[in-house]
Simulated assay, not measured.
Amino acid sequence: MAARESGPIRVGVIEDHPLYRYAVANVLSEARDIELGPVAESVAAFASNQEPAGCVVVLDLKLRGVTDSQAVQEVVRMGHKVLVVSAHAGQDEVLGAISAGARGYLSKDADGDDILHAIREIAAGNSYVSPTLASFLLDSTRPRAGVKSVLSDRERQVLSLVAAGERDADIAEAMSISVRTVRSYLDRIRDKTGRRRRPELTRLAIEEGMA
């Protein structure tokens, strides 16, 4: 694929494994239509470079400091488009990252061509998820009857804030209730829905149109 008329695609990397970080940076530096941006081991280290908004960032999920969907949110807030490339590619991780704003998701068994293809799609304004992982997104759109009806208005509000990535303290402040009350609502939601972990609750909110 030739470089865009507006110039090469600026791409950064956030990856804490030195060997994989080097390998990805090497693949990017050899592509004619890509300009390699900051290469960092954490979100904080990447942010210190003050990269102008608009970069495509290849992001691992399991990092030091800010991690998982929160890492995605932080990079998106900087104005960048996120492509997650992670060894953790279960349904919860994929849905959590996409709901946090990632434009694409690949597992680490993807080769260099897969990563370049995904970057080019994202830079062009599209999204890209590998065919294997795309089935998770299709499953998440299938409605499950009865969940909304068993949750109270306040429980639905708590669930939507969880899906937005808010912490318990932030939810408490937004709803003018105590953190203890927030956790009580979360316990009720878990008991009613059978979803225990936060990524599972985020997925539930997506399924029910509450995210």
Rank of each mutant, 00 (worst) to 15 (best):
Gly146Gln: 11
Glu121Asn: 14
Val94Gly: 04
Ala123Ile: 09
Leu161Val: 04
Thr141Trp: 13
Ile119Pro: 12
Ile119Asn: 03
Ser107Ala: 14
Val158Thr: 15
Gln91Ser: 03
Asp114Lys: 02
Gly165Ala: 07
Asp153Cys: 00
His88Ile: 03
Ser135Gly: 09
Asp168Pro: 14
Asp153Gly: 02
Leu161Gly: 01
Ser152Gly: 14
Arg103Ala: 15
Thr141His: 14
Arg154Thr: 01
Ser127Met: 09
Leu106Glu: 05
Leu151Ala: 07
Glu166Lys: 13
Pro131Ile: 08
His88Trp: 08
Thr132Phe: 02
Gly165Phe: 03
Leu133Lys: 07
Ala97Arg: 06
Arg156Ser: 14
Asp111Met: 00
Gly96Ala: 13
Ile119Cys: 08
Lys148Ala: 08
Ser135Asn: 10
Leu161Glu: 12
Asp139Phe: 07
Asp139Ile: 02
Phe136Trp: 11
Gln157Thr: 13
Arg103Gln: 12
Glu121Gln: 15
Arg103Leu: 12
Asp168Ala: 09
Leu138Trp: 12
Leu151Tyr: 08
Leu151Gly: 08
Ala118Ile: 14
Leu137Lys: 10
Ser130Phe: 09
Val94Met: 04
Leu106Asp: 04
Ser140Asn: 15
Pro131Trp: 02
Ala134Cys: 07
Pro143Ile: 04
Leu159Ile: 11
Arg120Val: 05
Val94Phe: 05
Ala169Pro: 01
Gln91Asp: 04
Asn126Cys: 09
Arg144Glu: 13
Gly125Val: 13
Glu93Thr: 06
Ala89Cys: 05
Lys148His: 03
Ala123Val: 10
Ile119Lys: 07
Ala89Ile: 07
Val158Gly: 05
Asp114Phe: 07
Ala89Phe: 06
Ala110His: 02
Asp111Trp: 02
Glu93Cys: 04
Val129Glu: 08
Asp92Leu: 03
Ala110Leu: 04
Leu137Thr: 10
Asp113Trp: 01
Ser140Gly: 03
Gly101Arg: 03
Gly165Tyr: 06
Ala123Gly: 12
Gly90His: 07
Gln157Gly: 06
Asp109Asn: 06
Glu166His: 09
His88Thr: 08
